[in-house]
């Protein structure tokens, strides 16, 4: 049996970090900030969680520190793109590069190792029913984000800010405030995503260990059209691809083929979704729902 509950379990484990990061990306997108720095924020979360857990012995302090550190790191995007009106794309790229450099530098200066830090006594996150509490939190976050965006006054204002900042400003709503909030929340979520990756999925830190997951999250935001539930489905697709990849490796496919699988699946999903959207707009000029 190829599709069984084990596969689903490992898919859910694989999707958690992506989902958390993508939720943050979706909030930014809704607020009108194009956030491609998810990868870097996540990596900062990975390192901080491992370092804090190592020095305090508490994985939970590691999670907390990761959220705070990544939120602080996200200020680069908030200040740069919102206050100084810099280019969000370039800032995001620079943040990703900076995170790789900074964490590798700190790995050597703090732990004195190169490549990977790994120790049996490093405290990881506990498992509850096969998942870390962060995995449950990710699903709760989807529900909360969905509710906030569609029903809450804050969500309404955020969406307005993202769509027409000057219109919001004429009504006394400060676009900068909402954009900052969205970016900082995305920082917290990416920090949690990093902690989940480094203290949940595995228990170690290695250079550039996010390995493109932040970018997959960016794509998940596009695929899910920045709606929390859409983002969840997109992340699920990626999780399944990664889990199926592992499974196929057991059947004898080379690791390289399965490494590439999530990216190929993501790309194909993007093709299909844009193609479908195009066909639909071609058929019905008024546009369709769903």
């Amino acid at each position: 049996m190829f599709f069984d509950s084990d596969l689903l379990m490992s898919a859910l484990r694989a999707l958690t970090p992506i989902l958390l990061a993508a939720l943050g990306g979706a909030l930014c997108e809704r607020a009108g900030v194009f956030n491609i720095g998810l990868e870097g924020m996540m990596l900062m979360g990975c390192f901080t969680s491992v370092a804090t857990s190592w020095f305090t012995g508490s994985a939970w302090l590691g999670v907390l520190a990761a959220a705070l550190a990544a939120a602080a790191y996200s200020l680069i995007l908030a200040v740069g793109a919102v206050t100084l009106r810099g280019d969000a794309v370039v800032l995001g790229i620079a943040m990703n590069l900076l995170a790789v450099g900074l964490t590798s530098f700190l790995l050597r200066t703090v732990f004195g190792v190169q490549g990977t830090f790994d120790d049996p006594s490093l405290a990881g996150l506990p498992l509850v029913g096969g998942f870390t509490p962060l995995a449950y939190l990710a699903f709760v976050a989807v529900a909360v984000a969905a509710l906030m965006l569609s029903r809450h006054v804050w969500g309404l204002r955020l969406r307005g800010v993202g769509e027409a900042p000057d219109a919001a400003a004429t009504l006394g709503v400060s676009p900068a405030k909402y954009k900052y909030a969205a970016v900082l929340i995305s920082g917290v979520l990416c920090g949690l995503a990093g902690a989940q990756l480094a203290l949940g999925n595995v228990t170690l830190f290695s250079e550039n260990m996010t390995a493109g997951r932040g970018w997959i999250a960016v794509v998940a935001v596009m695929l899910g059209r920045a709606a929390p539930v859409g983002v969840l489905l997109a992340a699920l697709l990626f999780g399944l691809a990664e889990a199926a990849g592992f499974r196929l490796q057991g059947v004898g496919l080379p690791q390289q083929a399965t490494d590439a699988a999530p990216y190929v699946v993501t790309l194909v999903a993007l093709f299909l979704s844009t193609a479908r959207r195009r066909r639909r707009t071609a058929n019905s000029p008024s546009g369709a729902t769903t």
């Binding site: 680069i76 200040v79 740069g80 793109a81 100084l84 009106r85 810099g86 280019d87 370039v90 800032l91 790229i93 620079a94 943040m95 590069l97 900076l98 790789v100 450099g101 900074l102 590798s104 530098f105 050597r108």
Partner: peptide, 20 residues
């Protein structure tokens, strides 16, 4: 790795100060 940090910082500053 410090040089990599330095490189990225240059771009962070550039992106924040310079409006393309």
């Amino acid at each position: 790795e410090l040089t990599q940090v330095l490189q990225a910082i240059v771009i962070v500053f550039l992106a924040a100060r310079l409006r393309f």
